[in-house]
Computed example of a mutant assay.
Amino acid sequence: MTKSDTDVPAGPRRRLLDLAQERGASLAGLSELIGRNPSYLQQFIRKGSPRKLEEGDRRTLARFFGVAESELAGPGEISYEPPSNPADPRGSPWIEVPRLAIGASAGPGALPAGESAFDAFRFSRRWLAEQGLEGAELSAITVEGDSMEPLLNDGDEILVDRRALPFRDGIHVVRMGDTLMVKRVASAGGGRLSLLSQNLAYPPVSVAAEDVEIIGRVVWKGGRI
Rank of each mutant, 00 (worst) to 15 (best):
G170T: 05
L195N: 06
R224L: 15
R217Q: 15
Q131S: 01
G155N: 07
S194D: 12
L111H: 10
D5P: 04
G191F: 00
A208L: 09
G11Y: 08
P83G: 11
L19T: 14
V185P: 05
G170M: 03
W220C: 00
G24L: 02
P93A: 04
L27Y: 03
I95V: 15
G103Q: 09
R58M: 12
N85E: 12
L159S: 01
P166I: 10
R13I: 05
G132I: 09
V185C: 04
G24R: 05
G223Y: 07
A209P: 09
Q42Y: 11
R51W: 00
G29K: 01
R126H: 14
G76L: 12
R224V: 14
A186D: 05
S105A: 13
S4W: 11
I225L: 15
P108C: 06
A101I: 00
Q21M: 07
N153I: 03
I214F: 03
P86F: 01
R168M: 10
E144W: 04
A68D: 15
D88R: 08
N199A: 10
A68Y: 02
A28G: 12
P150M: 11
F44W: 08
S79K: 09
P108S: 10
R36E: 14
V67W: 13
G103F: 02
V185S: 05
S197T: 02
Y80M: 15
S197H: 04
K52A: 14
E22F: 00
D161E: 02
V8S: 04
Q43S: 13
I45P: 02
G189A: 09
F167Q: 08
R217V: 12
R122M: 06
S105G: 08
S147W: 11
P89Y: 02
A120C: 05
S105W: 11
P12Y: 01
S147K: 10
D178A: 05
L165A: 14
D161G: 00
V8P: 02
S139W: 14
E144Y: 06
L195E: 07
V67F: 12
A104K: 09
L152Y: 15
G107R: 07
A186K: 09
G29E: 09
W94R: 07
S49C: 01
S70A: 15
T6E: 14
A68H: 10
L33M: 12
E69H: 03
G48S: 08
G114I: 09
I171F: 07
P86W: 02
M181S: 07
K52Y: 11
E134K: 00
S79E: 13
R184L: 01
S124I: 09
S49Q: 15
